[in-house]
């Protein structure tokens, strides 16, 4: 085979299995801890597998202190996160597809310079934008609302424009030319010729943006002031700051709740995922 190494197949599998163990163990440990009664979290040597599966830890984690003040409404946070993800994903896909089409398939003066500027902005780190964005959203009266966390997604982002443009360029020009000859407007070409052919690339963009929103911490930390409007990531940090250090089983249950949807999503969309990530490296 390709660059066949000096290792025998058995040795190779040994190493990979060992590596797999190391990579999976923390996840296993999270799951295991999340199902233990509290006493078993504090044993030395540790209890590897819970003596009984305490699924009620999950219920406790999401309803922790429901009867008292300071209750952390995880289900509400889940809804908030999904709302932001949905709005952001739709916006990101629509806007970036439009913009990328403009860059890939249409010729207009200044296009290449504009595209160059677009690429250059990929280097700008978020911390540089953090302060003025906050000031801007303050002027708009958006601080404390969901708006700063999803509306910008509707105006494109350099990385996704780049990704989709690369993809659109690979679609044969003849297809769209034929449609134009048939009397289609540019938008109709985009809508009925390009989009249907671009499902894989669009799913990559959608998936990445979903993950970004799901995982984002700094954005919600700055813009969300009301505890009822937190996202899951922010809620988990909040939970940790309130109940961390003692109730590790509940904290791990909460963490699992935040992680699990991502993993499930990954299993259903593995191919798109891996291809998408490979794509980001390729043309970089």
């Amino acid at each position: 085979m390709r660059a066949k190494g000096p290792l025998s197949h058995a040795a190779l599998h040994m190493i990979l299995l060992g590596g797999s163990f190391l990579f999976l163990f923390p996840l296993f440990w999270m799951l295991s801890t999340s199902l233990k009664p509290i006493e078993e979290t504090m044993l030395t040597p540790p209890q590897w597998i819970p003596s009984a599966l305490h699924f009620d830890n999950y219920l406790k984690a999401v309803t922790h202190g429901r009867e008292i003040l300071g209750y952390i409404p995880f289900l509400e946070y889940g809804k908030n996160t999904l709302l932001l993800c949905a709005l952001g994903v739709v916006g990101t896909v629509i806007s970036n597809a439009l913009i990328a089409y403009g860059f890939a398939r249409l010729r207009w003066p200044g296009r290449n310079i504009f595209f160059g500027i677009t690429l250059a902005t990929m280097m700008i780190p978020f911390p540089v934008l953090m302060v003025p964005m906050f000031v801007l959203f303050r002027e708009l009266g958006w601080v404390g609302t969901f708006r700063p966390l999803w509306i910008p997604a509707w105006f494109g982002s350099a990385f996704n424009i780049f990704l989709l443009r690369q993809f659109f360029l690979t679609i044969p020009r003849e297809l769209s030319d034929a449609a134009v000859v048939d009397g289609c407007s540019e938008f109709q070409v985009f809508r009925h010729v390009i989009l249907p052919l671009s499902r894989p690339a669009l799913s990559v963009v959608a998936l990445f943006y979903f993950l970004f929103t799901w995982n984002d911490f700094l954005g919600p930390l700055i813009y969300l002031t009301d505890q009822r409007m937190f996202t899951l990531s922010l809620g988990l940090q909040f939970y940790q700051s309130q109940h961390g250090g003692t109730e590790w089983h509940l904290l791990m249950a909460a963490a699992t709740i935040v992680v699990l949807p991502v993993i499930v999503l990954f299993f259903f969309t593995q191919r798109t995922f891996i291809q998408g990530i490979a794509l980001t490296g390729m043309k970089g």
């Binding site: 932001l84 404390g144 609302t145 708006r147 999803w150 009301d226 409007m229």
Partner: peptide, 14 residues
């Protein structure tokens, strides 16, 4: 989508 956008836009603290 319109409903979601409405919520995402108008949801205010308090």
């Amino acid at each position: 989508l319109a409903a979601l956008m409405y919520v995402g836009f108008t949801r205010q603290p308090g």
